[in-house]
Design a protein around this nucleic acid. Structure first.
Lengths: 112, 112
DNA sequence: TGCTTATATAAGTAAATTATTATATAGTTA
DNA sequence: TAACTATATAATAATTTACTTATATAAGCA
């Protein structure tokens, strides 16, 4: 099997090598999240969240879509990295309970 | 699917997020390599190679086995991280040409 | 035994990373 | 339009990383 270049794969792994970013990606595996949801979930400053998302976006791992005042982030399934990403994410435990928690708090932004 | 804890997965990804370490792991996917082979392949200082191997060893991703004066490193297939590792490595291009090059140079240490 | 080779560790350093606070931008709404 | 909300960017500081050189350890061999 030939697959991606090893250098690019290392860049992807490095980006996934942060607990916050890895959890973000697992969270948006099925449905997009917006920045303020991440801020709520991770209890981190908004700039910090934005900077993590920027790294993922710069690497084309995620894409953004504005909906009114919110910007939703989702996995970029067109990315050359998507197969690698997918095979990593499918080995991670579900993070949906974090979204359930948001719903309970009333801080979930429904994107549809 | 439940899989590994996300924090541990992030640690593994971070370790794989370095071109040298990722290539090392792909190289030893099939057969062990010793430190001096890595030094030759990567054209890096011996301490630098040893330090990369140490990180992988500390995380139980690789194991070492002394054979005479050489210490051979191989994937630790007993590791809880092995399934994740394997699914990443199988998406990487073969690095065997690097070993072929060693054979041509006469610097390949045959371990068996 | 002493010398050589292979590897590991220690100490130091430059660069990269990940947070923070402050500020800018852009859309929403009164 | 002004005020508000969501997000991005800039500047900065603390921490971590990945090298380097110097040195220690451990096995093989004369």
């Amino acid at each position: 099997m030939n697959g991606v270049e090893i250098e690019k794969a290392a860049i992807v792994c490095k980006l996934l090598g942060d607990k916050t970013r890895l959890t973000m990606l697992k969270l948006i595996e099925d449905e997009p999240c917006c920045v303020c949801e991440f801020v709520e979930i991770f209890q981190m400053s908004q700039p910090s969240i934005s900077q993590h998302l920027r790294k993922l976006r710069d690497a084309h791992i995620v894409k953004e879509e504005r909906k009114g005042q919110w910007i939703f982030y989702s996995l970029n399934k067109q990315s050359e990295h998507y197969p690698l990403l997918q095979s990593i994410l499918e080995q991670l435990p579900d993070q949906k309970e974090k979204l359930v928690q948001l719903e309970k708090n009333g801080t979930r932004i429904s994107c549809c």
